[in-house]
Design a protein around this nucleic acid. Structure first.
Lengths: 345, 345
DNA sequence: TCCGAGAATCAAACCGGTTAACGTCACCAC
DNA sequence: GTGGTGACGTTAACCGGTTTGATTCTCGGA
């Protein structure tokens, strides 16, 4: 492979010299912030093209005090990230709006609270103009912290205290109630729930909705969204003297693991045990029985969060956005009689 | 929420003034590139602490000509990203080494070839010092392109032409041969393979290994790694006059979809049909039957790629790294008799 | 004829760091 | 004394853009 003779990247000065103008003119020609004659513009563009000039992102960032990037700090254990079906889709949604705005996405994984603070400080030091905060906790410390750092921000989830940031909320309670109603319609009376960690806002909301619908916390268990915990909580529930006939999981990963466990001990699904998940993992429609779940459209969530953040950075005031992107997917894992719902293609 | 009076971020100049020294001294005190007396250092650090000074990433990037960031451009359809189990784990591995090096990760999703080129140019314009290239194609255009842009790089996968970049390779052929041997040992003679898109290097390698072991391409089908294609290819294979008794899939997503399809038409697994996947999705060990597959340790791959890239950026010469991270996981989906292999905890 | 306005461009300051070159001063050997 | 050396700081240039305040030129109107 021919070792390149280090082409010495051209700068705006080189372009200006080649076009016979000054740096300022080149800048104006591209930004359009001052009128430049068509003739000069043409010369400038030609020179830039010929030199293959790319404006330096860091120089521009320094001069404009804009990183032209947004950040996401993931405070999760790498192993959990690996098993997370939400995150990549969310990113895809975010990127779909960033791409057209020429804004980059900076990602950081932080294992500890300390690493997390460092990550946000790094963002604030000029790596990003704003951040999207996921996996909201109740009274999340990040909201005041990020605000004090002078960053723009958007939170995904219900933040109850007054927030300086735009807040993108979804209604997870309604689909939970719908599932319970559906299971009741199928004749179930002992309906259990395997929740996610209850200090997450979304886990909490889902379990509250479950409690409201069922009226008892006898059959409420707390998992951690991982497959192993789905299996273990299921084993515990099924070992009860009066075990549930239906289990509602806070995500599909736990539901699938639970479903498999139930079958491995000889139960039939949905005959002996009805199973429902949450999230609509890409596999859930392709299992047998296909899994009843709630499609949460993470791509759409990503898109809306990114748009809200760009708006915030552009100076628009913070607001609350209510998203309606949850869709109940009734499938075979909760109904003995096949329906002709037809949401599967 | 109290509107902050725009704290006017402190600069190195403010710190210098407060400590009664010049900017250069502050810089040296922190970088240690010139000796500074303990007394002065203490004053500088105190001033920085008091002012909550964070050095500006963009100013530093401009001055040092280093972005202190690396990039990954994902050339995939958002829908496919969403169903990808490899990617988040890989990212987690990458981050685990970046975090300690204070290097950021810039992500870009590019839907088209054109967008992809733009993304790499953006990286080259100072957003990143180097990139990791995934999903290598045979004779991938990105290798010369990225090199010409003056970026550092690492490719994951077997690039056969001489490459200016460090190349991280894995041996996917051996586990494929092992699975075939294992299936033969179970008595199977009609063994099919549902490959991924064959223009990907890794799909190609896997299918070649399959062909070498089986000796016929009668039962080779090409999928796209998505669940739907796993189901459809399976349906086609099982509809053959002389259908296979074992199917080997290029990833777990297709395998799980295929397995479910087989069961939905009344076949038992592994009794009537043995099924094996590739990747060891987080769910695979928790299905019933648990899925025989190959654990590919994407976290480790990410870690090694990131280390190699940082080394390259630091000026070390490119090299080829052979990774041994594939582990065959024999589970119930391919063996009628339960074994006591015990690799499951 | 002279003035004012607007268009097009230039020159220079500025963003916030890093770094090469240079100045001091103290100390030591000869 | 003289010269050399190392430690510690300072000055000023530089990185590659953007932006602001002149400057020049043209043209229309009073």
């Amino acid at each position: 492979m021919p070792q390149l003779p280090s082409p010495a990247k051209p700068t705006i000065g080189d372009v200006a010299a080649k076009a016979g103008v000054t740096k300022a003119t080149v800048s104006h020609a591209f930004s359009g912030r001052r009128p430049i004659s068509e003739a000069t513009k043409a010369r400038v563009f030609a020179a830039a093209e010929e030199l293959q000039w790319l404006p330096s992102a860091s120089a521009r960032a320094l001069a404009t005090r804009r990183a032209n990037a947004i950040g996401i700090v993931l405070a999760r254990d790498p192993e959990i990230i690996a098993s997370d079906t939400f995150f990549p889709a969310f990113i895809a949604g975010v990127e779909s709006v960033l791409a057209t705005a020429e804004v980059a996405l900076v990602l950081q994984v932080a294992g500890s609270r300390d690493a997390e603070e460092r990550a946000y400080r790094a963002m604030a030091s000029g790596r990003a103009d704003g951040v999207i905060m996921l996996d909201l906790h109740r009274a999340d410390w990040r909201v005041p912290y990020v605000h004090q750092l002078g960053l723009h921000g958007v939170v995904l989830g219900a933040y109850d205290a007054p927030s300086p940031f735009t807040c993108v909320r979804t209604d997870d309670a309604t689909p939970m109630a719908e599932i319970v109603a559906h299971l009741r319609g199928e004749g179930h009376t002992r309906i259990a729930h395997v929740a996610g960690p209850l200090d997450y806002v979304h886990s909490h909301v889902r379990s509250q909705a479950y409690l409201a619908a069922v009226g008892s916390e006898d059959l409420l268990a707390e998992g951690d969204f991982g497959a192993a915990s789905g299996r273990d909580r299921t084993a515990e529930l099924l070992a009860l003297p009066d075990p549930p006939t239906a289990i509602l999981y806070a995500n599909d990963t736990m539901a699938i693991a639970g479903l498999s466990y139930a079958r491995s001990i000889g139960l039939s699904v949905p005959g002996d045990l009805a199973v429902a998940g949450f999230d609509d993992d890409h596999l859930s429609a392709h299992l047998s029985p296909a899994l009843t779940t709630v499609a949460t459209d993470p791509i759409e969530r990503g898109r809306v969060c990114a748009e809200a953040l760009l708006a915030d950075i552009a100076g628009e005031p913070a607001r609350t956005i209510q998203l309606d992107c949850n869709r109940l997917q009734l499938r075979a894992s909760t109904q003995v009689q096949p329906t002709l719902q037809g949401e599967e293609r």
